[in-house]
Structures are given as C-alpha cells and as structure tokens.
Design a protein around this nucleic acid. Structure first.
Lengths: 173, 173
DNA sequence: CCACACATGTTATTCTATTGCAGTACTCGC
DNA sequence: GCGAGTACTGCAATAGAATAACATGTGTGG
C-alpha cells in the first residue's frame, strides 16, 4: 500500500501560516543536514512559493521579490529555483511553466500532480502503483525509465462541489 | 487488453519515406472527412515534423519553413501547430516545448510518451491501464480528470543496447 | 458578384529562461 | 587574522517560446 498523498488539496480548516512555517522549518533542517546554504534569497523565494500554495510563475516571484530586493533580476529567481529544484524543495509543473512547494522533500521522488482548472489548486501524490505501472509499461518497449512527468488536469473536490451546488460555470468549449 | 503502442521506436528496418507518406495520407484523408482544410502551410509543417520523427521545436520549424516561404513568421508556425494539435495530428511534449506527429489521429486520445535522453527518439503509447489507474487514483482525492500529461524520460532500447556494447556514455552528473 | 468566413501577412510585444562576466561573501587551511 | 578558492550575487544582454492586434488576401456559397 503506497502512501500516495504528499500534499493534499487545501481544506477550509487548513491553517496556512502554520503550513508555511512547517515547510520552511523542514527546508532549513534539510539544508543544514545536507550542508548546503539556504541563503536569504533562496529562503525568501521558497517562502513566497509556499505562501501562495499554488503554482507560481517565475516572473510573479520576481515581481514580489523586487519589492523588497531592488537588485533582483531574472537570473536571481532562476538561480534560486534551480537550487530549490535540485534540493527537492520545489517541483516544476511543466504544463504551466510554474513552480510549487514540495510537501515531502525528505525522500526523493518524482511526484504526480492533480491540477484544478478552476481554482489552480494543486495536490501532489507520490504513488508507487503509478510509478510501477509506468515502469512496467515502458519496459515492454525495452525502455529504461529515469524520470516521469505526470500532470493531471481536472476539477478539484471543492470546485466539483461548487458546480453541483448550482454555481456551475460555463464549460469553456 | 489495451493496444498500447501508437508510435513505436524507430527500428533500423524502418522505411522513413514510407512512414512519412503514410502519415501525410492519413492526415489528408482525415481532414477531408472532417471538412477542414489542410492548407499548403499546414501540410508542410506537418510534413516537416514527420520527416524529423522526433520532437521538433517551433522555431526550428520556422527556420525550415522560411527557406521556402519567405513570409513565415512565428504566428505562421503557431497557427499551423494550433490547427494540427486541434485536429489531433500532432502532440505537444510539455517537458521539451516541442511537437511530434501523432501516430493515430483517428481516435482522440491523450497519449503517453517515452522520450529517450540520448537520441531524442519518442514513442507514443495510448494505454488504457495507465489512464484508468490515474483516474482511479485521482478519484480517491475526489478529483475529476479532464486531461493527462504523461512524459517518461529515460533510455530507449537502441541506446540501452549501445550502452551495453561498451559505447557507454558518461552519466552527466 | 458580393458577402462572409477562414486563412495568412505583418509588426510588435509579452512571457520564459539563459549566457557571460564582474564583483562580493563565506569558509577552510594556515 | 589572512589569503585562496569556491559559492553566491549583480548586472547587462540576449535567446527562446508564444501571443496580440490589425491588415490583407482567398475561396465558397448565396
């Protein structure tokens, strides 16, 4: 039985300040254990990502960072993101060109993402069944897997509920 | 039993001219059946993609198209790609910002891609087991699936064989 | 033939990301 | 503490990916 949910969808009872704090503490701890430097810029970028708790664009981060750090430029952000990606502290969502905090940096994993089209919420799964099925299917083609990008678009539970309760949105085409 | 392989890896016996011709004929036939116009530009872009038989970048296509069509500009390519994507004649590989021909435009599908890191070859699968497992896992989160992006990076059979035969490449980092 | 829809031309702009080089700041060994 | 080396940041420019907005052309049906 795989423990599939790394980052669930935010519930209404979600205490966001606490959630950010936990993520930051985990990052600090992990970096010091690994002997790498979570510098002020890197820390701030990670925090900005967690505060939003949804996929964030690099240039949005840049705008926010500039408010407190005049010298920030694209490389500033991309370097920070590269570091955070390398340390497993954030994931990149390919289909959105955006970045989200990783709910479980302490064991390396690829992640499978559920992305809500209506509210942009993202949940992260880390499901062995999925990985193994894909690896098995790939193996039938003689293919050796190194990396998987799995991004599932659809409607999250909260938005499904809204739809049912009459507040149905036009299905854009 | 799903019929998983839409486009297999190119074998050495692969007759590429014939493969391109088949794809083009299928596209012509499909477009006329659907009453949409496979104009010269669209046809040419599709053909350029199939000739390469690997993921192609939009601006590479643009450079090639410009050689024979001076007026070509970014919108020229992106409009053609939009059309081809919409008709299911090509797929976009999110993790590469690149486009590949679809091996089976005649039934709509999402596709799962095996991408070789060494030679850039791509195989397309369309596997129900995978889709259904993902839909099932998503459902346990109360999530309704509309679309799946599945891109698997690794090493294709031909490159695995090369590796075994001593021509092993340095694992970059 | 005209009107309309569709397709393409053209120019500019936005968004995403990287390169290269210069300067600064930690940190390790002395 | 001090110098050397590495890692980090500043800065300017540019590459790469995609779209906007509006003009012009083309093809088909009434």
């Amino acid at each position: 039985m795989s423990d599939p949910i790394v980052t669930p969808f935010r519930s209404n009872t979600h205490n966001h300040r606490r959630c950010v704090d936990t993520a930051m503490a985990r990052a600090e701890e992990r970096c010091s254990r690994r002997g790498v430097r979570l510098t002020p810029i890197r820390r701030r970028v990670l925090e900005l990502i967690w505060r939003r708790h949804e996929p964030v664009k690099a240039y949005d981060l840049l705008d926010q960072l500039r408010e407190e750090h005049r010298a920030a430029a694209p490389p500033t952000i991309y370097r920070a993101l590269d570091f955070l990606l390398g340390e497993g502290l954030v994931h990149r969502i390919e289909s959105l060109n955006a970045y989200v905090g990783c709910g479980d940096p302490n064991h390396p994993h690829l992640g499978q993402f559920l992305i809500c089209e209506r509210c942009n919420a993202v949940a992260e799964m880390d499901d062995d069944d999925i990985q193994q099925l894909l690896a098995r299917k790939a193996a039938t083609q003689g293919f050796q897997v190194n990396w998987q990008t799995i991004e599932i678009n659809g409607v999250c539970p909260a938005c499904v509920a809204e739809g049912i309760n009459g507040k149905r949105e036009r299905k854009t085409e």
